Simulated scan of single mutants.
Amino acid sequence: MDRRTGREDPALIVIDMINTYDHEDAELLLPAARGIVPVLAALIDRARGADVPVIYVNDNFGLWRSHHGELVETALSGPHADLIEPIRPDDASLFVMKARHSIFYETPLSYLLWRLEVGHVVLTGQVTEQCVLYSALDAHIRHLEVTIPKDAVASIHAHLASAALEMMERNMGARIVSADEIDFAASARRRR
């Protein structure tokens, strides 16, 4: 719940998963990404089924003239399309472009969450010890409730990811859970 406004509605945030994996450390990240895609796909389906907003926040691959559809198509035409197809944005999905690590840094995400009356963000995607960590901090300082499904975030370095999860829990009050512990249906019942 947003401690300032009392808003409880959740949003599922998918961080940097629309990806060509054509970057430094990609070979280290790919095994972890492969491991989370089935879990993330199921979580996305559950969120959609409960009418919880699914918001993709993604790097733009440095192509400032690109739009989200082009990013999705570029990733789907690459060698790792099997990681994109199961989690592909649908027509109801929202999409925010980012340029730096945090999903909030100079993006309209804060305003979008306010408009959607979201007080709770479920952060998924990659990279646990980088973008997920910085985004959790920025969500925390915006008084949003933060949940991290530990089996729906991918890391480059497992030991740093473990430390990042501990920091998010201890320093930011994030709930660290398994994806199957997230009950989007309960939030749908509260909205009725």
Rank of each mutant, 00 (worst) to 15 (best):
M1A: 11
D2N: 15
D2H: 15
D2W: 13
R3Q: 13
R3H: 05
T5R: 15
T5I: 06
E8M: 09
E8N: 11
E8H: 14
D9T: 11
P10L: 02
L12H: 08
I15S: 10
N19E: 09
N19Y: 06
T20W: 04
Y21M: 09
D22H: 14
H23T: 08
E24N: 07
E24L: 14
D25E: 10
D25S: 05
D25Q: 13
A26V: 00
A26R: 10
L29Q: 09
L30G: 10
P31M: 01
A32N: 14
A32H: 15
R34A: 05
I36R: 00
I36Q: 06
P38D: 01
P38L: 03
L40C: 06
L40V: 08
A41E: 07
A42L: 04
I44D: 08
R46V: 04
R46C: 07
A47L: 09
R48Q: 12
R48I: 07
D51W: 01
P53Q: 02
P53E: 02
V54L: 05
V54D: 05
V57S: 10
D59P: 11
R65G: 09
R65T: 10
S66P: 00
H68K: 11
H68V: 09
V72C: 03
V72M: 04
E73H: 10
A75I: 07
L76I: 02
L76W: 00
H80I: 02
A81F: 00
A81W: 04
A81T: 02
D82M: 00
D82F: 00
D82I: 01
L83E: 03
I84C: 01
E85G: 02
P86M: 03
R88P: 03
D90Q: 03
D90Y: 02
A92Y: 09
A92P: 05
L94A: 06
M97R: 13
M97G: 13
H101P: 10
I103R: 05
F104N: 10
E106S: 13
P108N: 06
Y111W: 13
R115C: 05
L116Y: 08
V118C: 08
G119P: 12
H120E: 12
H120K: 12
V121W: 07
V122L: 12
T124F: 03
T124S: 13
V127P: 01
V127L: 03
E129S: 04
Q130M: 14
C131Y: 08
V132F: 00
A136Y: 00
A139K: 04
H140M: 08
I141T: 14
I141Q: 11
E145I: 00
E145W: 04
V146K: 09
T147S: 14
I148S: 07
P149V: 01
D151E: 10
A152K: 06
A152N: 06
S155L: 04
I156L: 10
I156A: 05
L160P: 04
A161T: 09
A163M: 12
A163E: 15
L165C: 12
E166M: 13
E166Q: 14
M168V: 04
E169Q: 15
R170C: 04
M172R: 05
G173A: 04
A174G: 08
R175K: 14
I176M: 11
S178I: 03
A179D: 10
I182V: 13
S187N: 13
A188H: 14
R189P: 04
R191N: 11
